[in-house]
């Protein structure tokens, strides 16, 4: 039961990250255009968020056995995500308009501006979402002998969610929903994930020494 719940959370987390990445690209194109650097930035920054999130999530997982903390993080991430359509324009406007008008933007900034934009708008929620998998493995693995299997399940569910997120946003969401609705919907899904975390009380893990005894 715990494993199933962890897998659902991992799947949803993977899904949401990819929706943010794909749909976020459209948002960035408004001010940065759709140059190759914009795609490069968005993909790169989401991977940065995942890396940092995994690292942080791992630290959190070892320190606390209470999903509540992550639930609070997810609520914050959801609030941030729901606000993206409102504040992203001011962030990207600021980045673009600090260059003198009527002059070509230096190549370095053509490359770095979209990355900075992606960092300010998409890194925070993706980072929090990426904290989930290491924590989920810790919480779902009530017996240390099952850690291998469970981490496999969590990785698999997360990747499957990402795959679904890519295709659902690219093939369906962008065609049927306005961008603000997609972000608000994503925020709602994150609130749901937060609720699950807040209400989850995982079984305490039995230690290796205890099983040997």
């Amino acid at each position: 039961m715990q494993t199933a719940m962890a897998m659902v959370l991992a799947f949803t987390g993977g899904f949401v990250v990819m929706v943010l990445e794909m749909v976020g690209m459209r948002l960035l194109a408004r001010d940065f255009g759709s140059s190759f650097y914009v795609w490069t930035s968005q993909i790169g920054i989401v991977l940065v968020a995942l890396t940092l999130g995994y690292l942080l999530g791992g630290l959190v997982a070892d320190r606390t056995h209470r999903p509540r903390w992550l639930g609070v993080g997810l609520v914050l991430a959801a609030a941030f995500t729901g606000g993206i359509p409102k504040f992203s324009a001011s962030v990207t406007h600021y980045l673009v308009s600090r260059h003198a008008a009527d002059q070509e933007i230096p190549l370095l900034w053509q490359k770095l501006d979209p990355a900075l934009g992606a960092m300010l708008v998409f890194l925070p929620p993706c980072l929090i979402l990426a904290m989930l998998p290491p924590c989920l493995i810790r919480w779902a693995a009530s017996r240390v002998e099952h850690v291998g299997r469970i981490s496999g399940f969590i990785y698999g569910a997360g990747s499957l969610g990402s795959i679904a997120g890519v295709f659902v946003s690219g093939y369906i969401l962008i065609d049927v929903l306005p961008l603000p609705a997609i972000f608000r919907g994503t925020a709602l899904v994150m609130v749901g994930m937060a609720a699950v975390c807040l209400g989850w009380n995982p079984e305490p893990q039995r230690r290796l020494s205890a099983t040997n005894a």
């Binding site: 408004r30 940065f32 255009g33 140059s35 008008a101």
Partner: peptide
């Protein structure tokens, strides 16, 4: 100018 068309329009005076 080598730039995205929309970015150019947004910045030009």
């Amino acid at each position: 100018q080598v730039e995205d068309g929309r970015v150019f329009l947004r910045r030009t005076r």
